[in-house]
């Protein structure tokens, strides 16, 4: 009998679902939970996904996070500059973090405060501007709170729906923000004006809890589903193969 899924495992499966149906494209997960998730998707329902070892190799077999693999089946070479080629060619779906995200999916990973003289310098823009206007993007926010889900992001790194629409066709042409997965819920932008919507709640989480932790109004459908539970086979893969050291637990707040 498999032990019941913990929250971090529910999150892994919810993140994995972001890549369902993507086929033969590069899945680029940022962070532990998204990495385990992308590898899980490839090992189960999305076998054609292309994954790297986090460095320059495309690897065919499922690798564990946080420890050296026994064997890497290297099927290709993808140094950083080739990643940009793939990215601009659109054959990629990234799952990034978001220090801040707003109602229309604008994301900030650059800094907190005024960019000219930030209160807290963070990573910088990284690839967020290019990612969001070139191919599908999803987000993983391990601590669903009003600090992260804000009315207005301090800096727009990743372009959201409203900003893209205001900018014009070059921004909207390949723009596709898919899912926002948090420790409480799965959210999307499947609404007439692309404002954020609750898609499913993780087991035991209420709508009020999610709304309370969000700094803007969320669209809440009437027939709100529960985030699907991991299957026994998914739990086995996560626990025994993809994350045997349990690194995922430290990322989920």
């Amino acid at each position: 009998m498999t032990a019941a899924a913990t929250l971090d495992e529910v999150c892994v499966v919810a993140c994995a679902e972001a890549w369902r149906g993507d086929g033969e494209i590069l899945a680029s997960p940022i962070g532990v939970v998204p990495t385990v998730a992308a590898r899980l998707a490839k090992a189960t329902f999305e076998p054609d996904l292309v994954l790297t070892d986090g460095e320059a190799y495309i690897v065919a077999n499922p690798l564990p996070v946080g420890r050296p693999p026994e064997h890497k089946v290297i099927e290709g070479w993808l140094p950083y500059r080739t990643v940009f080629d793939v990215l601009w060619a659109g054959r990629r779906h990234v799952m990034m973090g978001a220090t801040q995200i707003d109602q229309y999916g604008n994301q900030n990973i650059a800094c907190i405060g005024d960019w000219e003289r930030p209160k807290a310098q963070l990573l910088g823009m990284r690839g967020a501007p290019g990612n969001t206007v070139n191919h599908p993007t999803s987000y993983w926010v391990p601590n669903h709170s009003r600090r992260a889900f804000v009315e207005r992001v301090d800096v727009v790194s990743g372009v959201g729906y409203r900003r893209a629409a205001e900018t014009g066709e070059s921004a909207t042409r390949y723009h596709d923000i898919r899912l926002v997965v948090t420790n409480k819920a799965v959210l999307d932008f499947d609404t007439p004006d692309h404002s954020m919507r609750v898609r499913s709640l993780h087991p035991g989480v209420t709508v009020d809890e999610v709304s309370e932790a969000t700094g803007f109004p969320l669209v809440v459908p009437e027939d709100l589903a529960e985030t699907r539970a991991p299957s026994d086979e998914e739990l086995r893969l996560v626990r025994d193969v993809l994350d045997p050291s349990g690194l995922r637990t430290s990322e989920v707040k």
Partner: peptide
């Protein structure tokens, strides 16, 4: 030329 940057605050800052 590129699309990267369009619509983001890269253009503002």
């Amino acid at each position: 030329p590129t699309r990267a940057g369009i619509g983001s605050d890269v253009m503002r800052i």
